[in-house]
Design a protein around this nucleic acid. Structure first.
Lengths: 237, 237, 237, 237
DNA sequence: GATGAATGAGAATTCATTCAT
DNA sequence: AATGAATGAATTCTCATTCAT
């Protein structure tokens, strides 16, 4: 398991009413809400638009969730769990090499983002949510969970001597995190893939797996051996 | 010059009225506006707070700028120009080594963020502004300018054989950009430095130059030689 | 019997369904409703909180009562009957002196308020309920009942020459009513007794009977002989 | 001066905008707001109704006051100052006798209530405002001011031997306060005067001054010599 | 008889923008 | 040029009541 989200989940529970809803309606609501928070940051997201999309009364939102914040927390938690589980399940257990392990994690994360653009965009937005009171907690937890996962990876890599032992672990973990999170932007550009459009139009278009791997190879290469040419930039003497 | 911002500036021009203002008043206005957008994202920033701070009428904003968006664009452009000029002016012309050139750019960028927290925060916010209709253009231009600068650097590095010649330039430029932009977060954490507080309290507190360099060394090292240990992670064959 | 409440009760009758309820359920419902209206004025009281406490469906309230107003009316009537019965039952039948009779009525009323804080608070709230359409009727009836009781007392007092015969009976009754009703506030302050807390925590804490009597003595004294000093304020010649 | 309200007033100030309004508009707004709060308690009063009456936009209220609470505070303060000033100005300075002084205070208070029914009703409502967070402060201040005034009166009365020296001052002050505040209800009934209607229809109808004095004589008499008849209720031995 | 989801009107509040002065 | 009052649509949230199951 990559991360334990149970505490957060407990606090962000929908009401029982929500779970009593016919599956179809519940999903229409979640879909609309995911759309909204995938397309707008927390503050800009509008409950009014959600209910208009679903075709229900304003008050119904409050039958399902305690308020906008709880709805948001639930969605983020849901998305995070789904994505982490997806990655977890997709990772073979026996990948020995650090860089390969990292590359695969990112790879499956990217596949997730392409195939579930709503969830992916929501998480992406949450990552960059300004740390205001309303969303601080969940954004911080999301970030902490990701960092913790990477830290475990890095520390194992150092123990196995796959990584240099003179690394500033904090910085390396941070750098990996940033490259992972932001990769999505690069892929969007390179593949001419608009996550925004994908959110609006439902499940994403197929992606070129080879091209994706090519990018990840670059990333892994950069991390493995750096950018320096053979001479004289490389300090090998 | 690092970047030509004239096109953007033309579109985000204040009215002639604004330039007819006494310098002192113009600057008080800009200061207040910078404060506001440094502390809040575009949507949360309030014209009302700005005019209250400056002590002018609400209508005056519309004598100076076409609206909130134009004001924002102008401020971002201004901040970008100032930061790029600062870095430009701080860089010695004769730094041959790619990694050193990059390291110095980032170093002076960081110094700028610490010493001019308002401008730094504004740019940082703009970078992560959700790409909605209102702010899309300026954020994209800001990003494009930075990427272009880095691209020039990288391409020169390849020409000089300081960098490997099998690099995916687009990806490398992107990675450098992400590491550069986000470094601010890492420094904030490591140094316990709150940019938000610095904005509120005026010019930032002194930073530990040695510690800053230590972080930048890690970054440069990562980029230069990668993370791999001597054996067997490194593919040297 | 102090007062006949049957007319009011008829109008505020619960549905037959309510009386078919198992006694235990009926009482849990009434308890929760009393709590709610003891702690909040009519408008602020929430049916949602009541049903949440009892653990029944919202619709059930409308199986028992025609609506919020009817429920409220019934509760007030119930509380009034209970309080009046309590006072009635506590009063010895042979108290000749008017002031003593009055003092005892107030005394037992106070004891009731302390020992049954929910009912006492509900009645108190009802007394000061703004006379809007919704609650006018029941508040007026409550008041009328109390005034009628006091009128009987006063008229007897005059007949027995215990009271001056030049009194404006209407005014005296009114004054006695106000002093009676509001005494609760004074006792709360003097004894540091929070009726609100008592409602929340169930049956009230023990009160200092001697101190209570001391206050009532002051009240009775004021009513009996007035406030005037021996000379020259007192018109006795 | 009966009471110093300046502190409260400072905190409940309208915005400068409000004072810049043409007198006529300002007064139409205040009239409508007074109407609303005279007819409804704080919670039930609706800003929507006020703006509908005045014929302005909802947002305008917030140009004039920081919010509902501030508007309410201002109105209560205004009403209290007006009423206290009115009473102050109407009281002759040389009334030696305690009972006469009290009677006159109440008399002018009553006259005020009849002639300015909106202000009177607002204050009356504020007095019985449930001590919830929103209105606690102003209601408590209002009450405290009145009690303090009465306490001064009573203590002077005792010093002058106009009042018995064995009185429980706290209780007496409390009783006087209750009789004063509630007198309004009695007068309404006796004179068939509906303060509610008076609020709606503007300035009140003329009142029978002789009848009013008759009631106040009863009150003063009750307080001066009590209710007891000559024998044997009176404890004279 | 009981349920409880759905309703929708109404609450306070915010704020960029307009425009008559 | 500057003002600043007015706007009104949009925001989140509450809650008594209804009605199909």
């Amino acid at each position: 398991m990559v991360q334990d989200w149970s505490v957060t989940r407990a606090e962000a529970m929908p009401t029982p009413t929500f779970f009593n809803l016919p599956r179809e309606k519940r999903e229409r609501f979640l879909d609309a809400a995911l759309d909204e928070f995938a397309l707008h940051d927390y503050r800009s997201a509008s409950l009014g638009r959600i209910v208009a999309t679903v075709g229900i009364a304003k008050g119904s939102v409050y039958q399902y969730f305690a308020g906008k914040q709880e709805l948001y927390l639930y969605l983020v938690t849901l998305a995070a769990e789904t994505k982490f589980s997806f990655i977890d399940a997709s990772l073979p257990g026996d990948v020995a090499d650090f860089f390969e392990r990292f590359r695969l994690s990112v790879y499956h994360g990217a596949r997730f983002d392409f195939s579930r653009p709503r969830l992916g965009s929501l998480l992406y937005n949450a990552t960059y949510e300004p740390s205001g009171a309303a969303t601080l907690e969940v954004a911080a937890q999301l970030r902490a969970a990701s960092l913790q996962y990477l830290r475990t990876l890095v520390e194992a890599g150092i123990r196995n001597a796959e990584l240099r032992d003179d690394l500033d672990v904090d910085y390396v973990v941070f750098a990996l995190y940033q490259l992972t999170v932001s990769l999505r932007d690069f892929l969007g550009e390179r593949f001419g893939f608009s996550f925004k459009d994908a959110v609006r139009e439902g499940s994403g278009s197929p992606i070129d797996d080879a091209a994706l791997h090519a990018v990840l190879d670059q990333m892994a290469d950069l991390l493995r051996q750096g950018l320096a040419g053979p001479e004289p930039g490389r300090d090998v003497t």
